[in-house]
């Protein structure tokens, strides 16, 4: 049943122009930033040769491209997620799902997986770009794999937060802006709060704050470092927001 709903979401996305616009715009941004990095890399390459342990093309070109992609996702995911519940409520189609013999958990998890399916297509397209270099140079496949994995986790965090915000209102645009604000607040907090807490020697609060900062958790994987605490934080954030979304939708039935 979860997969029926996930398939429906994916189909609905590709049947609407939104998905195609998002894919096109993202691909243009990724393409530009990727080519720009290659250009920069070619210019500094003669100097890299003289270094004893020079960074490779994967570190200098691919990793920054993924960082750009993360920023683009920050805008794109709230827009995609607003369809999931807020728009269904506004179009009065949520009744179709709730009247069907399907639990709220199935609906929410199905919708999350549908959105993840779409984001995996985006991530696949981003990951394919560096692979075009494989013919001409040696790529660090380990780093590429950890970058991709980290990026999937980041996308899952964004998707779960945006899905929850989508449950809060029947106004799609309000849901998108809410999700964007929440994600931005999390990023800023992760940057500042975590560091300042750690600087004061408060390591436990700093570690707790890290759960709420998806980009901070992406960093180790982005450097090729499989940090299990960061991975656990990402999974915890994702699951927590999905559970909150389920509870929220369930409460709607009680509140009316």
């Amino acid at each position: 049943m979860i997969f029926t709903i996930a398939a429906k979401e994916l189909k609905g996305l590709f049947a609407s122009p939104l998905a195609w616009v998002v894919l096109t715009v993202m691909q243009i941004i990724f393409g530009y930033s990727f080519l720009k990095r290659i250009d920069d890399f070619l210019q500094i390459q003669p100097r890299l040769v003289h270094m004893t342990n020079p960074p490779g093309v994967t570190e200098l070109v691919v990793a920054p491209t993924f960082a750009t992609a993360a920023v683009v996702l920050l805008f794109a995911v709230p827009l995609l997620a607003m369809r999931l519940i807020a728009e269904e409520r506004r179009n009065q189609t949520m009744v179709f799902l709730i009247s069907a013999p399907v639990s709220i958990t199935d609906i929410v998890v199905g919708k999350f997986l549908g959105l993840m399916g779409f984001l995996l297509v985006v991530i696949g397209l981003v990951a394919l770009m560096p692979l075009t270099l494989a013919g001409g140079t040696w790529l660090d496949y380990g780093l590429l794999a950890s970058l991709t994995a980290g990026f999937v986790l980041l996308a899952a965090c964004f998707a779960a937060v945006s899905l929850y915000m989508s449950c809060l209102t029947a106004h799609p645009v309000a849901a998108a802006i809410g999700a964007f604000s929440a994600l931005l607040a999390m990023l800023l907090m992760g940057e500042t709060a975590g560091d300042s807490l750690r600087a004061r020697g408060w390591h436990v609060p700093a570690a707790l704050v890290q759960v709420l900062s998806p980009l901070k958790n992406f960093e180790p994987l982005g450097r090729g470092l499989v940090d299990t605490y960061a991975i656990a934080c990402s999974l915890l954030l994702t699951i927590a927001f999905i559970v909150m979304a389920i509870r929220r939708l369930d409460a709607m039935r009680l509140r009316g």
């Binding site: 609905g12 049947a15 609407s16 179009n91 009065q92 189609t93 179709f96 009247s99």
Partner: peptide, 9 residues
């Protein structure tokens, strides 16, 4: 329901 829950797309 009063408003048919249809997916227009």
């Amino acid at each position: 329901p009063e408003i048919p829950p249809l997916y227009r797309e």
